[in-house]
Design a protein around this nucleic acid. Structure first.
Lengths: 299, 299
DNA sequence: CTGTGGTTTTTTATTGATAAAAGACCAAAC
DNA sequence: GTTTGGTCTTTTATCAATAAAAAACCACAG
């Protein structure tokens, strides 16, 4: 077999949902236009079109492309088939690692991971290479990968960098005018926090996603690709950590949301010192929460 | 063809140079001992041994392994054959990029790089993946890699992080006792700086290596894998930059060496504030030097 | 001469085959 | 009974073949 037809399926799906908005007989526009709109090559769009013509969804001959009938639900490919491979590995792998039942020192076999997650071996390899500088895994040349585990020292070092970056970003943020896009976005996030805190406890489950957005937005004020990059990886780790550690979840999230609000309030009305103080307090809580859930043992 | 026999050649070379210290008739020791000493598998050591037996360098039958004659120069494999692939790509690629005649926006073809540097395509791919988070290149999914170039904003962002990390490391260093290994190592580096400054101008060519060691040692005080990792990459970039930018080289190096000495003196005898000040001054000069050589134009 | 679609070429992603290197196993030697 | 070396198995690195996707090319309609 050669490469997967993922892009073709994804393009077909997106083309179909576009067609749902049209009435039968409507013109579809030129191939080049469709390709540009879908962000794919004309070759792939043509494959999708001929697939849809065969299925009787469109009439197609030369320049004349018309909707023949409304797309049905079973015309679509399943979402699972179009999900990016990288995303699937990342999710499966991080879930496995942060689940906690994988001991540090475990050797990772590329072929086995590839089989287990049903993804190409090259994609597994690529993921592991990308993940290595992050420090959780290590490659022994000519040998296998070794899991170094989520140790206390790892968590500590991660937080040291996080504190450095977020403090730096906050200082940059304080220097920005109140009308800047980032500060406007922060005001919107402030409103979302208030709405979440007013809602029922169950709604608190959506806090991790909000938390990730808040911190990424904060870091984006640094306008630094290295910091953005780190923030992305950290948000993955923290996100999966939240998913895993269910203890006192609602209470913990509520407290974190309130700490976010204190930072946001200080940014809006308070002094720079108060904002720095609020951020430091929040990061200290976050560090404490994370460290509590990391086992003392481990290499 | 399958994989290269690089490890075999390297093991053979190292075994040969070990044999040069022995007199003919001497026993070589067990296969397992040799394998452990050379950091390779017994399988590979056995291949090397049978190669050397065939060449008449040793007499080998069962447990009895003796040196038959002194290894000659032409018994060795050429150094070029044993150099790690990763190192070769890194050197060739970074040299090409930092040479400056490659315009940002240039597309990189994996197969072409593989041919040009005579390294396996997979190794090129691996190198590019590792290098991507560093921000110089970018992958368009299902398409090629794109060079983003060594732009002013890139250099600026790199230095922002560098300043953050080195300041943090310095604070950690100031808290260490005078007898700590890092401070001892710094005293040795201090002496090397003084020796270099006393020597002729030509000796200043070895400064870049000393500079890299100084900064890496400083960063190592942070005891943080993320910081160490960044330091490694930066030292590569700065190293290649030095190699490229020959203007006022000696003068520039001399100045930097003196700035290093000021930091080291402050660490030894001065106040914390003086040390911080000296570091800030040095980083400002370094930033200025780098920025001067980065063209204003570019994406 | 510009936009469009049919066609061909190039490049990338993926797989399976193959040899190097590592690692496991086991019997003989000390 | 521990060490050592011969042999076999597993895993990794590499290449070649193949199909998807992209990109280039070209002819023709308007």
């Amino acid at each position: 077999m050669a490469r997967d037809t993922k892009v073709f399926k994804d393009v077909t799906n997106r083309l179909l949902s576009h067609l749902q908005g049209l009435t039968p007989g409507a013109e579809l526009g030129s191939e080049a236009t469709l390709a540009a709109a879908l962000g794919a090559s004309r070759t792939t769009v043509r494959s999708a079109l001929s697939h849809m013509a065969q299925a009787g969804i469109i009439d197609w001959s030369g320049r004349d492309k018309r909707l023949a009938r409304q797309p049905r639900r079973d015309d679509f490919f399943s979402l699972d088939e179009t999900r990016p491979t990288a995303e699937r590995i990342e999710e499966a792998f991080l879930h496995w690692i942060l689940q906690g039942d994988v001991a540090p020192g475990t050797t990772l076999n590329e072929a086995e991971l590839s089989r287990r997650y049903d993804v190409p071996a090259a994609a597994v390899r690529e993921f592991l290479i990308r993940f290595e500088p992050f420090g959780l895994i290590e490659k022994r040349p000519n040998r296998h990968w070794v899991l170094k585990g989520f140790t206390r020292s790892f968590a500590q070092e991660m937080f040291d960098v996080r504190e450095m970056y977020e403090s730096h970003a906050l200082d940059r943020l304080l220097a920005l005018p109140a009308e800047s896009p980032i500060r406007q976005a922060l005001r919107e996030i402030d409103a979302e926090h208030r709405a979440l805190l007013k809602a029922e406890d169950a709604a608190m489950l959506s806090f991790p996603a909000l938390d990730a957005r808040f911190h990424r937005l904060l870091l984006s004020a640094a306008c630094n690709r290295f910091i953005d990059n780190f923030g992305q990886t950290i948000s993955i780790i923290v996100h999966y950590h939240y998913r895993w550690n269910k203890k006192d979840e609602t209470l913990r999230n509520r407290k974190a949301a309130e700490e976010h609000l204190r930072i946001l309030a200080a940014l809006e009305n308070g002094t720079a010192a108060e904002a720095r103080d609020a951020l430091a307090a929040h990061l200290a809580t976050a560090r404490d929460t994370l460290m509590r859930s990391v086992p003392w043992a481990g290499a």
